[in-house]
Simulated assay, not measured.
Amino acid sequence: MKKEDEYDKFEEWEADNNFLDKKDWKGLVVYRRRKAENNPDDQYDQFKLGEAYVLNKEYEKAISFLYALHQKYADDQNIQYSLLDALFAIGKDETAIDWIIRPTVLRLSGDVLNYCYNFLRTKRKPRMVYDLYLELYMEGYLAFDDDQLMDFLHSDNRFTLTGYDAKSYDCFVTVNRKKDVR
């Protein structure tokens, strides 16, 4: 008779979330490794193990594991982004590996500011900076966080920010409607 694991009683998401909520990264690796071993053809379970390696700061192991998955599932954005997380964590960038399908990496730049401006200029109501960040997330891997985006928007006079208190979800942004902006 198979020994029952304490997490076998949970729905799958509950066991996983239990480790995530506790930030028990080692336990998460053990749990997800068992799932990946039991489901070797399940792309999602394989990816989740790679993600657990990243969360547990086993970056080299994550890179090796996720790169092999990328070879098999080249268009899987989850695999690509977790692989990028591991690369950036050890000070490398997206050029460090040979991609089959290279992900788009967005960095704070004039292009990002222009994207934000073009997105916001058609909106009448202010948007939270965090919502703008999520909009950008749809365009590619973001090599910056939402608070860095907020600070970057402050540097461009095309934008008006209100409610600024160092948290992007408390700050709203609109396009400055004056004709002489730039």
Results as ranks from 00 to 15, higher is better:
M1Y: 15
K3L: 10
K3E: 08
E4K: 15
E4P: 00
D5S: 08
K9I: 04
W13K: 12
W13R: 12
N17D: 11
F19R: 01
L20N: 04
D21F: 10
K23F: 06
D24S: 04
D24E: 04
G27K: 03
G27V: 02
L28P: 00
V29L: 02
V30W: 02
V30Y: 01
Y31Q: 00
Y31G: 00
R33H: 07
R33E: 03
A36Y: 00
A36I: 00
A36C: 04
E37H: 01
N38Y: 02
N39W: 01
N39G: 02
P40F: 11
P40R: 03
D42H: 04
D42T: 00
Q43A: 06
Y44V: 12
Q46M: 05
Q46Y: 01
K48M: 13
L49E: 01
L49C: 03
G50K: 07
E51Y: 14
Y53D: 02
Y53C: 03
Y53N: 00
L55D: 03
K57C: 01
E60D: 15
E60N: 13
I63N: 05
Y67R: 08
Q71F: 05
Y73T: 08
Y73K: 05
Y73L: 07
A74L: 13
D75A: 13
D75K: 09
D76R: 12
I79H: 02
I79S: 02
Q80E: 06
Q80A: 05
Q80Y: 07
Q80D: 02
Y81S: 02
Y81W: 15
S82W: 10
L83R: 10
L84K: 06
D85F: 07
A86Q: 08
A86S: 12
I90T: 15
G91P: 04
D93E: 12
E94K: 11
T95I: 07
A96Q: 06
I97E: 06
R102P: 03
V105E: 06
L108R: 08
G110I: 05
V112A: 10
N114A: 15
C116R: 01
N118M: 11
N118S: 13
F119A: 14
F119C: 14
L120G: 14
R121Y: 03
R121N: 14
T122C: 06
T122W: 03
T122F: 12
R124F: 08
R124E: 14
R124N: 13
K125G: 07
D131N: 11
L132H: 04
Y133C: 09
L134P: 01
L134S: 10
L136I: 00
Y137E: 15
M138Q: 15
L142F: 03
L142N: 12
D145K: 06
D145H: 03
D146W: 00
Q148R: 13
Q148G: 12
L149M: 08
F152I: 11
N157L: 08
N157V: 05
N157F: 14
N157P: 11
R158E: 10
T160E: 11
T160M: 11
D165C: 14
K167D: 15
S168P: 13
Y169F: 14
Y169R: 15
C171A: 14
T174G: 09
V175G: 09
V175L: 09
R177G: 10
K178R: 13
K178L: 13
D180Y: 08
